[in-house]
Amino acid sequence: MEVEKRLTRIKENVWRIEEDGIDYSVKRYSDVRDAIKIRKIHELLQIVGFPFCASVTSKGNAHIVVQPWIMDASPVDFTKQSDRRASLTALEALHETESVVDWKSLPYLKTYSLLEKWSWRLERFRNNRQTIASYLGDDACDLIEWYSEQALECLRTVPARESPHTLLHGDVVHHNLLKTRDGNVMLIDFDLACTGHPDVEIALWLHRVLPKVDYNARQLFDEEPRLQVLGQQSIAMLQYPNEVLREWSYLTTLPEERQRILAQQLIPFTELALMRWPDLCRFSNDLLEHNHYLP
């Protein structure tokens, strides 16, 4: 009997395929090593009973990874406390797998180097400054660079916690965190997965969430006790304008017409961030000074 299939392209290398009434996610990797990495991560998570991601099927080939499509799910909304809490729960469970999986031993998982990546991100911003300043203005660019330099200097001086060293998802943008009908969050797209301290990923999660709560870090720390035990380096990470740098650098990769469209969104986004940044830095510095959270 011929198998009935229906194929929908989601992205350049991602498809949704329906095969005999069952939906699958199909992703093709140009580098077979990336497919091996993704397949192994999911296999190990499945072995230890990790509940917050889809399994990998036996379908596909060396370059193609096939997983069940996560039904009735949508990207988390970081403006909602319930979605923030559910996404943190899934990430915390992922990080806790280091107690049963020796992630550091896997040869295809690199260790996350935040300082190196963020130094490179600032350099890229500077290299593209002429284009960015044509939309944003020199004063705003100066301020972004100054905040970035101050944050990097702070990060070089505060101590980093060495352990635990675990699996990090690597890209905690909202559309990689799918909230299901039962309220749980499923993690998808482990392409940037790496190893490191959980604090690093939680700090990156905070960067994604802060714009959705008007940069009110105190609100987040009040509602989530798990944030109150972050290490000093993670607290210092709050001061680095990561989202602003990344979005403006991305703009410079686009054709001019699309640059103008995106700039209309990024200008108010950046103006609000720069307005709130002094308070965010004061909050971070207060935590660093007291070595613990003061409600």
Rank of each mutant, 00 (worst) to 15 (best):
residue 47 I to P: 00
residue 202 I to D: 04
residue 133 A to E: 07
residue 72 D to V: 00
residue 77 D to L: 09
residue 228 Q to G: 00
residue 162 E to R: 15
residue 25 S to R: 14
residue 50 F to D: 02
residue 46 Q to K: 12
residue 222 D to S: 13
residue 58 S to V: 12
residue 57 T to E: 00
residue 164 P to F: 12
residue 162 E to N: 15
residue 265 Q to H: 13
residue 106 L to T: 11
residue 54 A to S: 10
residue 216 N to G: 04
residue 50 F to W: 01
residue 141 C to A: 06
residue 184 N to E: 12
residue 215 Y to D: 11
residue 164 P to G: 07
residue 92 E to C: 03
residue 242 N to D: 15
residue 67 Q to C: 08
residue 56 V to C: 03
residue 166 T to L: 09
residue 157 T to N: 14
residue 42 H to C: 05
residue 106 L to R: 13
residue 19 E to P: 04
residue 24 Y to H: 12
residue 221 F to M: 03
residue 145 E to F: 04
residue 22 I to P: 01
residue 174 H to C: 13
residue 85 R to K: 10
residue 103 W to K: 07
residue 204 L to S: 06
residue 170 G to R: 08
residue 225 P to Q: 04
residue 84 R to H: 01
residue 140 A to E: 11
residue 128 N to K: 10
residue 228 Q to M: 02
residue 242 N to T: 15
residue 37 K to C: 06
residue 209 V to N: 04
residue 141 C to T: 01
residue 117 K to L: 12
residue 194 C to D: 09
residue 12 E to N: 13
residue 179 K to Q: 09
residue 51 P to R: 04
residue 220 L to C: 01
residue 53 C to K: 02
residue 291 N to F: 11
residue 43 E to T: 13
residue 253 T to F: 13
residue 185 V to Y: 05
residue 128 N to Q: 08
residue 242 N to S: 14
residue 268 P to M: 09
residue 213 V to W: 00
residue 94 L to R: 02
residue 40 K to P: 00
residue 81 Q to S: 14
residue 272 L to K: 14
residue 107 P to I: 09
residue 181 R to A: 15
residue 21 G to W: 05
residue 244 V to M: 09
residue 224 E to H: 01
residue 269 F to Q: 10
residue 29 Y to I: 08
residue 229 V to N: 03
residue 155 L to Y: 04
residue 293 Y to H: 01
residue 171 D to P: 03
residue 108 Y to H: 14
residue 206 L to E: 03
residue 280 L to D: 08
residue 282 R to E: 13
residue 174 H to R: 15
residue 250 Y to F: 15
residue 112 Y to G: 02
residue 97 T to P: 03
residue 107 P to K: 10
residue 217 A to E: 00
residue 259 Q to N: 06
residue 74 S to R: 15
residue 211 P to A: 07
residue 185 V to N: 04
residue 110 K to V: 13
residue 29 Y to F: 13
residue 118 W to E: 11
residue 128 N to Y: 07
residue 260 R to S: 15
residue 79 T to F: 03
residue 181 R to I: 15
residue 211 P to K: 06
residue 248 W to R: 08
residue 73 A to G: 04
residue 28 R to N: 10
residue 57 T to Q: 01
residue 251 L to S: 05
residue 265 Q to F: 12
residue 2 E to G: 08
residue 82 S to W: 00
residue 287 L to S: 06
residue 158 V to R: 10
residue 75 P to G: 03
residue 207 H to N: 10
residue 236 A to M: 03
residue 219 Q to L: 15
residue 103 W to N: 05
residue 33 R to C: 09
residue 19 E to G: 08
residue 197 H to P: 05
residue 185 V to P: 07
residue 22 I to S: 14
residue 208 R to C: 10
residue 67 Q to W: 00
residue 171 D to G: 05
residue 48 V to S: 03
residue 22 I to R: 15
residue 179 K to N: 03
residue 220 L to E: 01
residue 143 L to H: 04
residue 112 Y to N: 09
residue 210 L to P: 01
residue 189 D to L: 07
residue 83 D to V: 06
residue 267 I to S: 07
residue 53 C to D: 00
residue 58 S to L: 12
residue 48 V to N: 02
residue 144 I to P: 00
residue 13 N to D: 15
residue 11 K to I: 08
residue 203 A to K: 06
residue 187 L to K: 06
residue 69 W to L: 01
residue 263 A to G: 05
residue 288 L to S: 05
residue 54 A to P: 02
residue 17 I to M: 15
residue 190 F to Y: 10
residue 235 I to H: 02
residue 209 V to A: 08
residue 48 V to D: 01
residue 252 T to N: 10
